[in-house]
Amino acid sequence: MFSSTSAIIELLGTISFAISGTFSAMQRRLDAFGVLIIAFVTSVGGGTIRDLLIGDLPVAWMRDVQVCLVILATSVLTIFFKTHIKKLKVTLFLFDSLGLGLFTVVGLQKGLNFGLNPGICIALGTITGCFGGITRDTLLNTIPLIFQKEIYATVCILGGAVYLLLLHFQVNTDVSKFIVIALIFVTRIIVVQHKLSFPRINY
């Protein structure tokens, strides 16, 4: 799991979303088992759906037990250190944004490795980045961010388009990955700070 840049990015994305899921579950006052389940589905939800769609079976976390161990360790450490973190909402937001960028790149690259259409690769990147959060929010009985006025999935689509554009102009793959991760992370922060959103459709 840790032998390449892509693997390291996936590891960091797993950790980021495990922290995000753990904080979300703690905010809803779930018990320890519930917290671990939410951390797990947040970390692997998007990647599981992606792998099912492209037929890469068994899905990634079933082939590598280290993924499950990383999620478990991250969640336990997050619970242990929660008393040292005062602003849970800020922490949740930052790790969710970081995970969004990291996993979008993972999904994009996997689509490219399978030789899929660029548009499909962007869709896979968006699914990988967003659907863990959708599963988390659904289990916590919260309307997922992707279905609210807040700009969320669009940031992944923008990042995916930039990634493919950088590759088209033969920018180094690893450099392109880090540029896009930073772009998604920073754009998400700017969007939230300035309360940018699409208009709601009223009935």
Rank of each mutant, 00 (worst) to 15 (best):
F2Y: 14
S6V: 09
S6M: 15
I9D: 09
E10H: 13
E10A: 11
L11C: 14
L12W: 06
L12N: 09
L12E: 06
G13V: 02
T14M: 10
I15A: 08
A18P: 14
A18C: 12
G21A: 01
F23H: 09
M26C: 13
R28T: 08
R29I: 01
L30Q: 13
D31M: 15
F33I: 15
G34A: 10
V35R: 11
I37P: 05
I37S: 00
A39W: 13
A39F: 13
S43V: 04
S43H: 04
V44A: 04
G46R: 02
G47F: 08
R50C: 10
D51C: 06
D51N: 09
L57W: 06
P58L: 03
A60Y: 12
W61T: 00
M62N: 01
M62V: 03
D64S: 07
D64K: 05
V65F: 03
V65W: 05
L69V: 11
I71T: 08
L72E: 03
A73H: 10
A73M: 12
T74S: 15
S75T: 12
T78K: 11
F80Q: 06
F81Y: 15
F81E: 05
K82T: 15
H84K: 12
K86F: 05
L88Y: 15
F93Q: 13
S97N: 10
T104E: 04
T104N: 13
V105Y: 11
V106G: 07
G107T: 07
G107K: 04
L108S: 02
Q109D: 14
F114T: 07
G115D: 14
G115L: 12
N117H: 15
G119R: 09
G119N: 11
A123Y: 05
L124K: 00
T126K: 07
T126D: 04
G129C: 09
G129Q: 06
G129W: 03
C130M: 03
F131G: 00
I134Y: 05
T138H: 02
L139N: 00
I146P: 00
I146K: 00
F147R: 12
F147C: 02
A153V: 06
V155S: 11
G159R: 04
G160F: 03
V162C: 05
L165I: 08
L167C: 05
F169I: 08
Q170N: 04
Q170S: 13
Q170H: 10
N172I: 06
T173M: 10
V175W: 11
S176I: 05
K177P: 00
I181V: 14
L183K: 08
I184K: 00
F185S: 00
T187I: 09
T187Q: 01
R188Y: 10
V191E: 05
V192P: 03
H194C: 07
L196P: 01
L196H: 08
L196A: 08
F198L: 14
I201L: 12
N202G: 01
